[in-house]
Design a protein around this nucleic acid. Sequence first.
DNA 1: TTGTATGCGTTATCAA
DNA 2: TTGATAACGCATACAA
Lengths: 355, 355
Amino acid sequence: MCSVDDDAKPRPQATQLEVARLAGVSQRTVSNVVSGRGQVSAELASRVREAIETLGYVPSHAARSLRSGRSGVLQLIVPELDVPYFAELGREMIKRASERGFSVMVQQTLGSDQREYEALNGPVGSFAEGTVLSAVGSAPAVWPSRQTRAPLVLIGETRRTGVLDHIGIDDSAASKAATQHLIAVGARRVGFIGAHTDGDLPMAQMRTAGFAAALREAGLSLDPQLVAATNAYHRKDGEEAMSRLLALERPPDAVFCATDLLALGALRSAHELGISVPDDLVVMGFDGLEEGQYSVPTLSTVAPDKAALAEMCIERLLTRVEAHRLGSHEPAPEDLTVPFSLVARESTRRIQQSA
Amino acid sequence: MCSVDDDAKPRPQATQLEVARLAGVSQRTVSNVVSGRGQVSAELASRVREAIETLGYVPSHAARSLRSGRSGVLQLIVPELDVPYFAELGREMIKRASERGFSVMVQQTLGSDQREYEALNGPVGSFAEGTVLSAVGSAPAVWPSRQTRAPLVLIGETRRTGVLDHIGIDDSAASKAATQHLIAVGARRVGFIGAHTDGDLPMAQMRTAGFAAALREAGLSLDPQLVAATNAYHRKDGEEAMSRLLALERPPDAVFCATDLLALGALRSAHELGISVPDDLVVMGFDGLEEGQYSVPTLSTVAPDKAALAEMCIERLLTRVEAHRLGSHEPAPEDLTVPFSLVARESTRRIQQSA
DNA sequence: TTGTATGCGTTATCAA
DNA sequence: TTGATAACGCATACAA
């Protein structure tokens, strides 16, 4: 009658109370052993550990975080995870977070303001102890009643709000440096890929501005025909934009692309049209993707220090989380700048000046 | 005396009880309104909603999941998020999961068995209602006391366990098809990049096996010199391996790479050594990365249907989660196969047979 | 050093 | 329809 019911419903996770009973101690003691906080005699501790083992006890994350107010979870919100820039960033963020004992929920907005809003203000958003947001737009969705919520750090090319932490590189300066590099290698007719079709994408604005500034300072004219707008910032968009530029009566001798992905698409387009990079045309990207080290030709780029960015984000966020938690005074919002480097590769090898 | 203390500690999140008081109803009613479950008169409902609004109430995820046993969180464990294959997969998974009301925690093992174990068996692992694991090794770390835990779906080239769901493509068949394609375009001396240095990486074994089978069936010999082992599967590894193959006295006229990343590195290496792909050498990858559509030359590849894979994973996982939750009988573990397609691009344009 | 008791914010059972 | 009330599993103030 008493068969081994190996197919019984698995009993729900063991609790501290059950462990306590098995070990013949109070639940309090089990809690102490598990969290390693209070003092427990070696004797009892080992009995408890044994009971934990046999019962396969695992602490309930939900109960723990309800009780303690800490979830050990951070939230990372990005537009698209498969855009290499965000994937590389995600890697670093998760790595840093886990080093400090946090797990990371990754949310994808896919360009939707509503999804961004929900991720930020929904239950899981407040479950997270802090959020790193790579905002798409001008981030007005962020605003509502942010004060009372968990800490938030903005990254990327969001307009600075003055009331939220923001960490990123100096986009205008970086774009300017990139453009100056193009000019330095001999470009005279410099184009730009990645102005935004709809106008007010901060990232596009800042990069366009840096580009324009460099031309102005070099005394070069900015031919509006050479500024190609795109809807998005993927390889495909770069490819299309480049083919448009190369179809012009007077095509550019250099192109600065707002992202590496655009540049990679542009390289492909040039190749298909029989234009040699860098001999006929030099090309520069922005993002420092690993992919650009292996393209043919390899891609010159502006490389934000992503590791430093991730490090600073997590650092800043956790500082704020700690303050938030203790109820102590949180630091004033800051605008932190991450260094970038200009990486010159094959795609911008010096243009031979024709006599 | 009674100054506006706009710098007071933000009161901790409002609770249902506070909302109830403000609306002059019981907390139960608030709960009903929030969850949309029980019946509430329109009158009260709107009063409650107003109170929620003014108080900025957001449900406590922790309390909710403690009480209900549901967290609404899925876990995705991958080796490295910045490997495009996993990034693309991650994108699809998160998309599918969020369509079904779940958020996704992304864990990175960075190749460490221990991290894999911890993600799986730690508190956050059991907090998640289900896990999708792309295991690195033979996944023995997975095993301990898995029975009582949350549902788990294995993806990728793990050895089938017979007791866990596994979803993936038929790796051997896919590799065989790829190799056959190389032979079909005229290859006679076919090499392989991506055998694993340490031997027993299931993915490497299966792909090597498919490769070998194709050669055997075609009556071609497999020159062991042409099988290049790598430690990892990144562009760099492919580049190094290819340069070794090309340094051989009798280099291959075709190379099948175990991943697209290896292949992309290999393309780069060939370019640097002045070997033309596909004229001197045809190259085939595996993964169907978007990057391969833009490389020079574009990369032929075996493309698993990642969208279908993600869809099936989430589908299967949620079915199991539901069963697990209801305590009903869970379906028997299955081995589900996702279709793949062979994508022929420039890197395998037909080899001109020399007389 | 260990045990007892309370409450975190919900949901859900039971009455009203 | 709505209101009290009891868990969910854990951490901690307090007592022993």
